[in-house]
Write a protein that binds this DNA or RNA. Structure first.
Lengths: 202, 202, 202, 202
DNA sequence: AATGAATGAGGCTTCATTCAT
DNA sequence: CATGAATGAAGCCTCATTCAT
């Protein structure tokens, strides 16, 4: 009754609430059913609003989907930025350093499952996002090669791509299945990638 | 082994030709556009037949999609069986043996790109197929552990899952992009998985 | 008594108008052409709306057909209930009492020709509806037998079934053809069923 | 091998067999499912022939349906003719005479259930056929009125129509349900129509 | 006498989106 | 801010029927 309409004809408090709600429900349904099998009608039904209301906040089905992708991209970007900063502080050993970074990615996926599913698995942008991710990993690896930690005769682009593939698949089969924690996964795969399977290494 | 699909109609040589043509075109379009964005109307147009003809050979859009998935499953299954047999013949070293097996999988993906895209990336069965694949890999790994070649303190289910993820992603980004051959990829990742990135091993 | 159909959408006055219009036109066309030869496209054309509008109010062609059947069932049920109550008030003679009841049924058919055609002649439920009707008539006859008015050595189930058949057929050939009124028909057949054709009775 | 092809390019022995078979199966399916829900494809499948074969013998779906109707009409016609002749031989009493006639109709329906279902219940001609039947009954009744057996103040067209309705409905609910025999039914309804339900008559 | 293959025509239904209020 | 009502566009599928052999 005494609500403040702050933004003139723009979306106010209630609208923002509806918008967020729709976005949240859309994320859930897209993650669950995929793009095509998610129906605007189903989203608005769960949100208890009508279809035109949906179009008040989103230009189209594609638009809300893209918005969720962008949301994921942003989170991923933030995370990666953060990684960069912390990676400067080399208080820990090589393995621990890498493991921590990987763990943070898993954590991101864990805390944003729906949006990650959309951005990383369902969207057309997924390929590009993963490529981007691989590129960053590759750069990091290159540093370690320069530092003399890693072999120099390995195709880093393949290794980076492999790491992305591993993260991708373990997220799906182990993390989201609730079978492993981000830490467990990152520990395990870091060791694997650093030392390999062969016994004689130990 | 391969059951003949019982059809209401009898189908002769010409019909089989039409059927194969439709199947081939469908594979192409499904691989290209995904399930929903592939229209029966587009398939039949490319095949130069009318829509009812499609339903002469396939019960529904879902049915033809599933048939392609099953086709991929069958090829994969055959390949894996073959792997098992050859893995017994240990004329070569460990690395070469594993590399060969992985290479064969990449070759399968290379030679059946469309159907692999459908079965391995687009279908709902994909998860299950990959899980199956992971399970087989895990079993193979277990043998090597028993033989004393591999570490015993590694979670093999994670390693297997990781390998599947690597194959999956490299297929998409390197193999199908035409950047690497099956042999190159398998060599590289086998070395990676066996010896790891760390230099001191050498 | 009459349950409100739970619909996903809210429907206001205008919508209800469209719905009623569609229902009315559908009744007309179903009655005229039967289920299969009535096309949704024709219904909506006559209603001056587009096809999707139809599906705004009815789940399917089957559904609207069934709704009309149920509508008929409800009317028939109400009528029969009413018959029961009035049959208690024996202010008039036996013949008049029965004739009135039968007349009311004819009136129902006259006033709801389309829906009656659907429910009583075109639907699969028709058999069941008639059986139900026959059962009720049989019960009424049984009372008269107990009261000593009617022969006791007659198979009442046959008589009841016969009465239904008579009503059914006379409705079609005399009532709906506009050749006879409900009263004329009921008078005539009541006398026939009570006293028979033989002259010597008089 | 030594088959005689009597009719040149016309249908020979085998063809005649196919034709009869198709007709028989069509009758069954039409009776069971109605016109629209009977598919040519289903008929030929059950007959173990192909669809073009069907069109070798019948011009269209409508044509074979009509042929079955005509077949029923013919049987009914024959029966009625026969009735006329026997009705001349008045060796028995009035009741018995009428009962016999009605019984013969029920027998016809019993022995030709499928074709009767089609001609008497499913076809558009049904109305006309029944009207025809009613007319004949009315004529017979008129004779009895002239002979002084029946009331003269009864609308015979209504009575005739009523009798048709009774036969129609009892056939469906009692005869084809296997609950009553032609004789039982005809006895019962003849008595009903002649003497009525009222007790005082006896 | 019969078949394998194919099609013209058309029906039902769904869905994202918009209009008017 | 939100709704009731409606629609354009299009997709899947079915069926009676025919062509060429």
């Amino acid at each position: 009754m005494f609500e403040l309409k702050k933004r003139g004809r723009q979306i106010g408090a209630d609208g923002e609430k509806s918008r967020e709600l729709l976005l949240k429900i859309a994320a859930k349904q897209f993650a669950l059913y995929g793009f095509h099998d998610t129906k605007i009608s189903a989203i608005v039904k769960e949100a208890n609003v009508t279809q035109p209301t949906f179009y008040l906040y989103f230009k189209s089905k594609e638009a809300i989907f893209q918005e969720l992708i962008d949301l994921f991209k942003a989170k991923l970007h933030t995370q990666v930025e953060h990684s960069r900063l912390t990676s400067g502080i080399e208080t820990t050993g090589l393995l621990q350093r890498i493991a921590t970074n990987i763990s943070l990615i898993f954590q991101l996926f864990q805390e944003n499952e729906q949006v990650a599913r959309i951005g990383f698995f369902l969207s057309t942008d997924a390929i590009e996002i993963k490529e981007q991710m691989a590129k960053q990993i590759e750069e990091n690896l290159a540093v370690e090669v320069e530092n003399g930690y890693f072999h120099s005769n390995i195709d880093l682009s393949i290794v980076a791509s492999a790491i992305v593939g591993v993260i991708e698949h373990l997220t799906l089969t182990k993390l989201w299945a609730g079978l492993k924690t981000p830490d467990e996964l990152s520990q395990e795969i870091t060791r694997l990638f650093l030392y390999g399977l062969i016994r004689e290494n130990e």
